[in-house]
């Protein structure tokens, strides 16, 4: 029951974020979306994922998007009535609706093949999971087997992820940093 309620709130957040014209409010709504998502992950017993969603999705992403917003305008461009009624604009609207419906239908079709939630006979629960659950403490010495998988069994992947984040940081430095001394650019601030 509560799950359906939470999913409905998610849908409401998505519609609100798309339809609202004030981009700052849209970022706030996405933060709410992330927190509800974290609650759903907790309900699914995926505490590590919920933690990541709460700290990254709701915390850092909102702040970084607001920071990006400080470099652009706060409000979406409002089309005039005549602009909205142009044939090309109408065509784009119909085309995007078509794409969204097709994609949604394919995704729903994909879920029909998925096993029941928590099904012990599902392939995901039969392949390597039993080994991680039974042996990870003995083999890696840590109690939390999510950490054991991330740091030890899939250590290369985590190294790759860390390198991706490092590369992102380097790219931001290269693209946005002013290497010349410039007094005008010293001031921070989330201003609009």
């Amino acid at each position: 029951m509560i799950d359906i309620l939470l999913l409905l709130i998610i849908v409401a957040c998505a519609i609100a974020a798309v339809s609202i014209k004030d981009l700052l409010s849209a970022i706030m709504i996405l933060g709410v979306y992330s927190f509800i998502m974290a609650t759903i992950f907790t309900r699914l017993n995926a505490v590590d994922v919920a933690f990541t969603e709460a700290s990254v999705g709701a915390g850092i992403t909102s702040v970084l998007m607001i920071a990006a917003l400080s470099r652009t305008k706060r409000y979406e461009y409002l089309y005039t009535k005549s602009e909205r009624r142009k044939p090309s604009a109408l065509f784009l609207k119909v085309l995007s609706l078509f794409i969204v419906i097709i994609t949604g239908a394919v995704l729903v079709y994909g879920t029909l093949d998925m096993p029941e939630f928590g099904d012990p006979d599902a392939p995901a629960n039969k392949h390597v999971s039993p080994r991680y659950i039974e042996e990870s403490h003995h083999e890696t010495g840590v109690n939390n087997f999510v950490t054991a998988v991330l740091a030890s069994y899939r250590g290369y992947d985590t190294l790759g992820e860390t390198t991706v984040i490092f590369t992102a940081g380097i790219c931001v430095i290269l693209l946005l940093r002013k290497f010349k001394k410039d007094d005008d650019d010293r001031y921070a601030g989330i201003c609009y």
Binding site: I60, V63, L64, A67, A68, S70, R71, T140, G141, V142, T147, A148, A151, S152, G155, T158, L159, T162, I165, F166, A168, G169, V172, I173, L176, R177, K178, D185, Y187, A188, G189, I190, C191
Partner: peptide, 26 residues
């Protein structure tokens, strides 16, 4: 595993700080 967690933490923390510092300029 402790060691690599600390490494991941340092990189992530300072990349987030860097992105904020570089993006929020105005």
């Amino acid at each position: 595993i402790y060691g690599i967690e600390i490494g991941v933490g340092i990189t992530v923390a300072f990349v987030m700080i860097t992105i904020f510092f570089e993006t929020a300029k105005k």
